[in-house]
């Protein structure tokens, strides 16, 4: 038992940045609920969760190329493209709906795969390759959905944007008022989606050889190559997985808004926010250090910060300014570790 505790202590020591992000999120979220007139209610939690899903997935998508030591400027665009595809395909009979969702996820994944191929075989820097492919993705999105709109299955929209109780109720799997179900009935479905598709994919992936190789490339590509690790496969896998996560975000966004919108500004904002979330979550932009769960937390922090604007009356004109200042402060909090470091050489890692 004590060895388990020691393990826990050492893993916290090694993931100080992650632990710090979790603490920051908890503090911000609790304070938010205290200030909110209807704080600590299921309704507020559900609404918050709904609005967080897309950015969480996009941030997780961004993490993986960042771990390689690159940046993916196409994540927002791939999310938008996927949302537009979903707005066309996700309706009709239950089978058609499922096929539509699968097709959406496949499309985004395939787009990420192409990003990977271009980076590896075109020998391009990720940032520049994805700048171009991001524009292509926006072009495709506009082609599919020249004007905002679309028709996404209404039941599905209701079912996945509310609590587990509503989900079961909508599809009538069983009696949602069953006694055994009560303790979990309040859980918002969007939170579950994040956990199942986000953590459920990332945690096992991290433990594969490919996952390890991604970290190794970000730490020292030369050494990784000399160790005979599958460099090219790992890079392609990294962008493919990024495409998958971005597609998850797009699919959810389409279902949540019951429409698709090829909005270039929005896509750009998602991409930039994803980078901020990755940094907030403790992943180094130099690569090799961090993880997608950190970015999940980082994205939630960004979101909670934006929720504050709703309950505090701040002049909308000032909002971007305040947002920028708060973001700067939040990122600097991560830099507090600098004061604890005794070996100044460690600063440069």
């Amino acid at each position: 038992m004590s060895s388990k505790l020691a393990n826990l202590a050492s893993s916290i020591r090694q993931n100080r940045a992650f632990a710090g992000a979790v603490l920051m999120l908890l503090a911000l979220f609790v304070l938010y609920n205290i200030l909110h007139p209807r704080g600590f209610s299921s309704a507020v939690l559900i609404q918050n969760a709904n609005e967080s899903v897309a950015i969480v997935f996009v941030a997780m998508a961004q993490t993986i190329p960042v771990l390689l030591g690159g940046l993916d400027l196409s994540v927002g665009a791939v999310m938008t493209l996927s949302a537009c595809i979903a707005s066309v395909l996700v309706n009709g009979s239950p089978l058609q709906i499922i096929m539509g969702m699968v097709a959406t996820l496949l499309a985004g994944t395939a787009f990420g795969f192409c990003n990977g191929l271009i980076v590896v075989y075109g020998r391009l820097q990720p940032i520049i390759a994805t700048l171009a492919t991001g524009a292509i993705a926006m072009g495709l999105a506009l082609f599919i959905r020249p004007k905002p709109g679309g028709d996404v299955d209404g039941d599905l929209n209701w079912a996945v944007t509310n609590s587990l109780w509503d989900f079961v109720d909508t599809y009538g799997f069983f009696d949602p008022d069953a006694a055994w179900f009560a303790p979990v009935a309040w859980i918002p479905v969007p939170l579950l989606i994040i956990l199942v598709f986000g953590a459920g994919v990332w945690l096992p992936f991290r433990r594969t050889v490919i996952g390890r190789t991604i970290y190794a490339i970000g730490s020292a590509e030369g050494a990784a190559y000399m160790s005979g690790l599958p460099i090219n496969r790992a890079k392609i896998a990294a962008f493919t997985l990024a495409g998958f996560f971005a597609a998850c975000g797009g699919l959810y966004l389409a279902i949540q808004t019951a429409s698709g919108n090829a909005d270039i500004t929005q896509a750009g904002a998602y991409t930039l926010n994803s980078i901020a979330a990755v940094v907030l979550g403790g992943t180094s932009l130099l690569g090799g250090v961090g993880g997608a769960l950190g970015s999940l937390i980082g994205a939630l922090i960004l979101r909670v910060i934006s929720f504050y604007f709703r309950i505090l009356s701040i002049d909308p004109l000032l909002q971007p300014l305040v947002e920028g200042l708060v973001l700067l402060a939040a990122v600097s909090l991560g830099a507090v570790r600098v004061f604890r470091i005794k070996n100044r050489l460690d600063l440069f890692r």
Binding site: T208, A216, S219, A220, A223
Partner: peptide
């Protein structure tokens, strides 16, 4: 420093970097 080690990674990861195949079950380590 550049060809032998991935300095920010753990000692364990560095030791295993060339032989993940021996400690994996399927695709998982």
């Amino acid at each position: 420093k550049t060809e032998g080690l991935m300095l920010p990674m753990s000692i364990a990861d560095n030791l295993l970097a060339a032989s993940y195949a021996y400690v994996s079950v399927g695709p998982f380590i």
